[in-house]
Design a protein around this nucleic acid. Structure first.
Lengths: 211, 211, 211, 211
DNA sequence: TATGAATGAGGATTCATTCAT
DNA sequence: CATGAATGAATCCTCATTCAT
């Protein structure tokens, strides 16, 4: 039955159409949410016919997946270089670099992120985000391993999870919540939290906190 | 269109019916997600007719709102007492109390929370969650004000935002992510982060981190 | 997703609705053919909403299957008694009975039969018709076995196939073609063909024809 | 709407394209049935663009008509010579010739025939098949008239109808049903039926059968 | 109040057909 | 002539909601 598993556009014109559709989907999603983003609505927003949409996307989910891919790609394009740069900097400076880049990447896409965050788990979108997170985790793991040679693999795993969590979630919450806090002060707080954790977390540090 | 604004159930049997419907909605939501939670499906799960559902809820959104209310109420029932207790404890102990209670409350409801997280901003569910957050914020603000008399109101606001953020988001992420980290180790890390921030964050502390 | 595998109507009203839908589908099919028999068209013809149709039928194919079932049932109701009567009559009289009954049953349903004949093979409709045919075949096989004890099983099979074929196809073609031949003359010809085959077909008869 | 009434291909290359399209349509029809035989699918199968298809066929029906034409032509190419030969042979031999040729012609095209059989009456495909049948009928009528000079025109009409019916339908049913009967035995039975009818059917013969 | 049948607007998707290149 | 992207009316089907009993 379904035989159009996302056709490869071969002409320049169709590449533009794909582009327009994805952009339109992102716009509708961020403006009006998942429920309002019907295929007809998206097609209208893109200025194409409903049929065109199905030339390039197998179904609605496939289109939404493409939007996620787009966001993930953009995000990677900003954060991965920052992670690379951070690897050559000292811990605190590196964290500043990464948090700053993350925040930049998210600020552009805040409303869309909200819409995409709101999707059910288990689908391929989750996989994409999981892959992105895995990539970031690898970087952070490597850095932490270098800075904290005394930590066992299990402890490294734990410290890394929390660092990635903080580095992703705090900026996300900041752009979604829009608290009345200046950007640079938020960054300072976030960096301090991450730095403290990166430097001190672990078996000994725990004892200290308990005392 | 929607007109009957959630009739107050006055007899015992009605109250049970409302109960059954909300529970059924929660079950379907957490098992199969927002999209699959149709009103007919929920009614069937509750063992009532679709018509009956509309005796007690103005429309689908109203029912989902009731589910959120239920979750928020349960959450409050656990966290507010913890916040009260924390107010009489020292900072670190208080944080342990609150983080523990938050984690407990969330662990019971993890899949449902995932489903409810998926809400567009501006609707009434957001308001409910916002209200809950406001309440938690008030407690934290008061405690922080007491412990850190040197902070200005603006600084207090900032520190409080981050504390609430950490206290809510870290447990939520922990239950949704299910990372391979033992609960007590996660709690220790989270508490350390919160405690550090509660005690040290502020104008001077920032300078320290920058140096 | 699909969860309504043809719901059992529980009230009198719904039984009537099902009835009306099947009848309407049959009417549209016989008047305008498979392609024109859209679900909305059928619903309109039945005087119900499109949604109602899906209360009782899983999808369009399921409805068309129900129409076939209906036709097959009506057909059986006429032909099986005739086959039973024929079993107690002599060969020629029995054939007259069966051909007559078959012709009666088909004449009522001629245009509908044309529409249903025109469906793709392999689906469940084919199975229904196959089952009906199997039933008729069993009767004919039994009669032939009694009348022609000299035939081997393989020969019986062959003679039976042809008899069933003639008994079904000739009346069908007669009602679909509407040739300018009076009914009783057609019946006489058909009966003669069947009788000749029933009585003479077989090893010896073949030799005769070859000579 | 439909306007270009099947352009005459004038160059060799065009003729080949038309050829490829018709063949592709036939292949898709016989493999996957009417419903799956979309114009795009057929164009893809033929290795041409959807647009090209409309260079040579006014619309989908026109293409399907061309497929029918092709089948009818092929059929005629086999059966008409057989009918001509049969006219110079004695009755039984002639019937053998015709039934054999009919069976050959149908065996090659069985699945396609099934797909094409599924046509609503009144369309142009019906006309084509009717024309073919008329042609066959003329031959049979002439032969019968010669062999049975005692029959009145009305009786001739009746006998002819049945003979044509048997000569067409029995082979068709045989190739579509694929009963476990060897071809030559089926042919022998069919020929016997036809021969008996050709020789004996008529006013007197009826009396005989009735007695 | 409860029921469940009925509703119908609206959504996803298809496909015959057109048209710019 | 050929291409293949684009079209959009039409189709199947869903589901929140209503209403007669």
């Amino acid at each position: 039955m379904a035989e159009n598993p996302r056709r490869q556009p071969q002409q320049e014109r169709s590449r533009q159409t794909v582009e327009r559709i994805i952009t339109a989907a992102a716009r509708v999603l961020e403006r009006e949410g998942d429920r309002a983003a019907t295929t007809n609505r998206i097609a209208a927003e893109a200025g194409v016919s409903p049929g065109s949409l199905y030339q390039y996307f197998a179904d609605r989910d496939d289109l939404l997946l493409a939007v996620t891919e787009r966001v993930v790609t953009e995000f990677e394009a900003r954060v991965v270089p920052a992670l690379r740069a951070a690897a050559r900097e000292d811990v605190v400076t590196g964290i500043v670099t990464v948090v700053g880049a993350t925040l930049d990447a998210m600020e552009e896409r805040a409303p869309l992120l909200r819409a995409l965050t709101a999707r059910v788990p288990g689908d391929r979108q989750e996989e994409l985000l999981r892959a992105l997170r895995a990539r970031v985790t690898d970087f952070v793991y490597a850095s932490t391993a270098r800075n904290r040679p005394e930590l066992s693999p299990v402890e490294l795993e734990r410290v890394t999870w929390m660092l990635v969590e903080l580095a992703q979630t705090l900026p996300l919450r900041y752009v979604l919540d829009r608290p009345p806090i200046p950007r640079d002060e938020f960054v300072r707080d976030a960096v301090r939290l991450l730095a403290t954790h990166a430097i001190e977390a672990g078996p000994r540090a725990d004892d200290g906190a308990q005392a």
